[in-house]
Design a protein around this nucleic acid. Sequence first.
RNA 1: CCAGCGGGAGCCGGACGGUUAGGCAACAGUCUGUAAAACUGUCUAAAGCAGGUUCAACUCCUGCCCGCUGGACCA
Length: 372
Amino acid sequence: MDINEKIDLITRNCQEVLTVDDLKKLLETGTEINHYIGFEISGMIHLGTGLISMGKIADFLQAGVKCKIFLADFHSYLNNKLGGNWENIREATEHYFKQGLIASLKCFGVDDSQVEFITGKDLYEKNFVHWETFMEVGKHVTLSRNLRSISIMGKKEGNDVDMATLFYPPLQVADIFTLGVNLAHAGMDQRKAHVIARDVAKKLTINPLKNNKGEIIAPIAIHQNLIAGLTGPEKGKNDEESLKMSKSIPSSAIFIHDTPDEIRNKIKKAYGPPKEIQHNPLINWVETLVFWGQKTGNFKISRPEKFGGDIVYTKVDNLIDDYKNEKLFPLDLKNALADWLIEKLEPARKHFENPEVKQGLVKMREFLEKKN
RNA sequence: CCAGCGGGAGCCGGACGGUUAGGCAACAGUCUGUAAAACUGUCUAAAGCAGGUUCAACUCCUGCCCGCUGGACCA
């Protein structure tokens, strides 16, 4: 595989790459690409994590990238997820979240032996360099910038900002250097942390990131778009925040282990304005899930004869044109998406049929209910 | 530690020693070959905690907890 093919594979279905030039240089020097993506253990795994992020990992692996999944237990604790209960977080990390990611990878034919899982506890324990790195990062971030960056943890600047919240962004930045990550991967919501990492990279003296020539480099940051939620934009709002699929709003999200009936019902209730392309979850899912950010693919829509009969789209633009011109009715698209998702998620559902894995999900549900 | 202010449903929040707050969200139904919007309807509970005063406390009093703001000097 030549470098351009690798770049295509690595950058497809992404919203932002910082920067493609840096990526190219890294490949040209023949430096091993060390990827990471981190997840808080905060709720059930939805399509954004399960399909968008894990599908991207399948791309990375194909391009020869070494992939790491960071189970951010300490970050969850700092951010008061699962009630800030450390024992529940640990339990959910091992018995639910990790299994959920393994299940998601299976949807792309990836075996979990191809990626490395690492928890915060594993990384930090007996790791003095991490502590040093964390402090040095702190020396290069101003309070105001740090405060602005807490949006990465779903928080707004306000009066409920405690010190733990302020520890979080520099900790996340330090993770990247401690893990030796030169390809940081996340949703667009995490870009502030990654940009700080890139800025700080050039200033670090204790544990800088280097390429295989020994030159100090900044980690490449790759951001995917946040998958649209089922409920559509909030009244009077069109911002990213109200559009995205959120684990904390179960009605906005489809989870990887949802049953076929749940998937159908949720999609039926999804926001789906005819003709409208912007802020339309159906179109968003077609583009980013089904066609995976590519122009061509294969998507079959079954519909009754009286509404035009079955149709197969091989170009995403054709589908979008038909939708705009009302040649494709939202409900028909919904049904096709539901079928597509049910099939795509089949390996994940199967993984959760394993009694032990299922037990982890049951436990997770308990944690989430208790919290509320 | 000291002082002032505050603490009410998922969120915001007016008032009041007694009689439904209200809004948003949520849920259900109607209407559209989906959803949304619109319309109709439904429901949720409680006042940070512990006491006290009172026939009656969200309201008044005491203590405690939590939060916000202020607390050297200079001016």
